[in-house]
């Protein structure tokens, strides 16, 4: 343990579960999504492989959406850590140049933030946005009805018109997924890097909840 660092309870159980549920459903979504885009292996004679892939795809999207709703609820109402202030766009914009300078090796140190640095905050905020976008485009592509109440086309068909037809909705749905894949890979890389550079157990903290902290961080 490097000097002047102490254990800090960073993530409570709810945040950790939420994180891993999102990871699991995202992995399922990406895998089944690629399969639906281009079925790269066939099923056996009695298989219902594509039907299962689609079922899992829809199921994990619902899981993800419910997770997002809970996450938004927690960020306002969590007794442990209601962190919605950390996502303030205006506050974070000021910190962006410094973070970019840090990550491009133009600066050696950056301001310590309470929980997320500005780039992190923007990325996570964008994830909330793209989950909603993926849900909307997904529902627009989905043909069926919701509990027999209304059809997906009646509810979300406007989006197809806006984007120029279902084929274009499909392209957007696909490209937005790539945005997520790339940012998620960067996310994993950054957490590993942080763990290695600062030796602060960032990576482990999403399992244990505890992280090493040298400073109390900037107050918001």
């Amino acid at each position: 343990m490097p000097k002047k660092m102490q254990l800090k309870y960073e993530w409570n159980v709810a945040y950790r579960i939420e994180h891993w549920v999102h990871v699991a459903s995202m992995i399922v979504l990406i895998f089944t999504g690629f399969y639906i885009h281009w079925p790269f292996f066939g099923g056996g004679p009695e298989s219902q492989i594509m039907a299962w892939m689609r079922f899992l795809h829809f199921l994990s999207m619902y899981t993800l959406l419910i997770g997002l709703v809970l996450r938004i609820y927690m960020s306002f109402n969590s007794r442990f850590d209601a962190d919605w202030r950390d996502f303030s766009v205006i506050q974070n914009l000021k910190g962006v140049p410094e973070m970019i300078a840090y990550y491009t090796f133009l600066k050696d140190k950056h301001t310590e933030y309470r929980k997320y640095n500005p780039l992190q905050a923007f990325t996570y905020l964008s994830w909330a946005g793209i989950i909603i976008l993926q849900a909307l485009t997904g529902f627009a592509l989905y043909s069926g009805d919701f509990f027999g109440l209304f059809s997906s086309q009646a509810a979300f068909g406007w989006l197809n018109r806006l984007l120029g037809g279902e084929s274009h909705t499909r392209v957007w749905h696909f490209l937005i997924m790539w945005y997520f894949i790339i940012t998620a890979v960067v996310h994993v890389y950054m957490s590993l890097l942080q763990t290695l550079v600062k030796r602060d157990r960032t990576f482990q903290s999403m399992f244990t909840g505890y992280k090493l902290s040298s400073a109390t961080g900037k107050k918001r």
Partner: peptide, 13 residues
């Protein structure tokens, strides 16, 4: 769309 995705992925890598 595949090529765009792969190119962006490669650039990120």
């Amino acid at each position: 769309a595949d090529k765009i995705g792969l190119a962006a992925g490669a650039a990120a890598a």
